[in-house]
Design a protein around this nucleic acid. Sequence first.
DNA 1: TTCGACACATAGCA
DNA 2: ATGCTATGTGTCGA
Length: 543
Amino acid sequence: MGLSTEDHLQDDVHFDDDEGLPQNIPSYPLSDIHSLDSQNSSILTQHHPSLSDFSSSRAPYNAKYPPQLQRRLPRAFPLATVLNHPGSTHEIMGQHDDNLHSPLTHEQPHPNHDLSTVGQDYPPQQVPLHGLSMPGLLSKPALIPHIQAPLQYQFAGQMPQPSMQSQPQLINIPHMPQQYPQMPQYTQHLAQLLPPQPSHQHSQILSSSMPITSQLPQMSAQHHQHYLPPLQGMHEPPYLNSSYATQKRHSEDDISDGTKQRVAPRRADLFRVGPPFSEAVEHRPIFRGDTHERLTPHIEARIDRGFELAGSGNWIGYKRNYFTMVVAFDLGIDFSTFTNTTFYTSRNLAVGTEDVPINYFALNIEAKCSDSEAQVSLVQHTPKRDKGPQNAPPIFPAVPGRLPDHETVKESCNKRNDTKLELMNKIFNFDRDDFYSHQRHNQNTNNSVLGTYPQNKIARVARFERIQFTKSIRTKVTTMQHKYFTLHAELVGVLGSGSKEQHVVLASANTPGLLVRGRSPSKYHTEKTSGYRGPSDSENYSM
DNA sequence: TTCGACACATAGCA
DNA sequence: ATGCTATGTGTCGA
């Protein structure tokens, strides 16, 4: 990515009208969570504008995505089990049967469903969770050798020298002797040609464990200002005479600082660790069904491809390019405990509270815009890209797991070898049948949440590959407002079952602000002021 | 001006 | 080494 000819996201972000995507619908409803739980609520998530009224012409249920991009589970949900719980899901759900639909139960996208927004009852104030240690999961039965060390924001080795900040990360291949007899059109990172540089540290950042409470890009910058990520094309424009290079040179915020070169599409170093995610923010409580202990969710998430840190401190991605994101969660209990109990959440009623069983957990990603008036959605391509279908990113039913390291995610990409695929499956997926057989687990037991998971593949780690910001984003240059995106990793609780299945966001973690560059080179200069710059004007930033 | 569609190019994979 | 694949991105034209 990095080196595209793409411009940036403009000052204003809209959906194209001709795609039927309504504007001015807040992507983050800020209604208080308690008000959401009032008796008048049709269901847990009903206050979301896209959920509250399926038939509303103003805010259709699937407002956020066009029909072809409706959210869906990777697999069907065949079970219709309803947990036996004092909270009585039956009663709760029974109040609003007609409104209870779950696109997640459909294998195919459903034009009237948008799970992506179900239960996004984000509280007005995000309260960081504490005590995010997760001792138990280290002892879970599955052997996952790729697990990274948890919870520390790690910087490998020594910090790079300040001078590195101004040193080129890329060189033009023609400058390399003998290697390329013909004038190449692509560049190669210095890191590939020279001994390890400080930029290497970047890939070792455990982004998911970096507590960041602000979404502002500058917040991330402060954690990275001491080293230089592997940015692209720092100097030496390959096409000095081309309009392409000329255009690129106008950007001060540009990672390559005017040295735009094409990036080889399969270059290994397209995989880079992106911005760190915040700690999990709790949206709804999670209780154990057996002890009624309130649990502290922890979300691990990392972007492994598609974003890089510019000198200005902004994380930059490109609308036309893929990004990859992985998400895992745990509840602060060991895996065997997880598999031997049930869970429930609660909602507030006008009088008292009501417990609602969680049939299973799921992991989801969302994109949001700093401008709550603007909506942003994501699409996922198949390897066939244009020749294949395009859907919204799936929502993964998931059990607690640990995030594989960056290299593992990178290695998991585009493997076709059966042996390798199987290996990756063991890392990213949870085989419940295998677990039952090895644990002699009583799968008929009524007190295990595992029994109410979908029958098909369950994730340990949700891996979202080939994700792009929707093409529906378009820009407008009439405002001076700074706009940026954030990516959110969400732990979803699936309530009810069958046609009554509901999804509520239990917790989420988010990136700092991201700049996503569009495809119009003519907007390149404007980009310098379109992105959030933080308290100090990064226009003055010099690499 | 923007974007879908197509095209080109190149590194990874088997 | 060879051929296929995946994907960054250049380009055309509606």
